[in-house]
Amino acid sequence: MHRILSKERFSSRVVKLEVEAPLIARARKAGHFVIVKTGEKGERIPLTIAGADTQRGSITLVVQAVGTSTEKICALKEGDEITDLAGPLGQATHIEKVGTVLCAGGGVGVAPLMPIVEAMQQAGNRVIVVLAARTRELILLEEPMRAFSDEVILMTEDGSYGEKGLVTQGVENVIRREKVDLCVTIGPAVMMKFVAALTKRYEIPTIASLNTIMVDATGMCGACRVTVGGKTRFVCVDGPEFDAHQVDFNEMLLRLKGYDNDR
């Protein structure tokens, strides 16, 4: 049912999978995610959709092996089936022409940023992308990003590619240089926390796409709850995107560790 049509290895721990899912490919919009479960006893984990091909009836997922479930997904081969796949879930990104949009992505968060970059450009925005990674090998999707944006700025922590530094430095350079109307950030929670803190100083509206722990992902269990503007919100149905300046990232970082030692 959900066969892997192609697999590409981006780095030792990151793979790109093109998965057969015609209904999801047709229904999905930028910002949506899917639930993936591998094996009968597998866990349900959320992955933001990185792209879709309605002709081929497929969606693209970029997965980093960080735990039991993601390792299982990364080990799948071309022709294998994903046991369970459901979506598209969550609220789509609100796309409109606002002027200049700065998209800041880190780690595998760059992948779900791709459809947003594309949609923002198609809506007539000037789109600047900051891609950040620890080292050159981990910079993802540079070429397609260039194709759908006005400028791509590369940041590596070790300076092996692009500029040396963190994503926040790349973002701040752009903000100092020109007027930015909206910032969109996807990446590790700690990265989004610092991007949000930075853009708040400059009073630039900022959207963050949160990837929390989920079980059903349809609004039933509340495992994904986060505090946004002092209120409890459910990432699976209210999100995954929220006003980054309102998100309690410290609480989110803590909650992501909820099952680290409780096997």
């Binding site: 866990e43 349900r44 079980v215 059903d216 039933m220 269990c221 509340g222 495992a223 709850r225 986060v226 505090t227 409890t232 609480e251 803590l254 909650r255 560790k257 909820g258």
Partner: peptide, 19 residues
């Protein structure tokens, strides 16, 4: 209420029964 180890019965039961 968002401390670790505080959860809804839906989450708890879904983890045990469904998963």
């Amino acid at each position: 209420e968002n401390l670790l180890g505080v959860m809804s019965s839906n989450e708890y039961l879904t983890r045990v029964n469904l998963m």
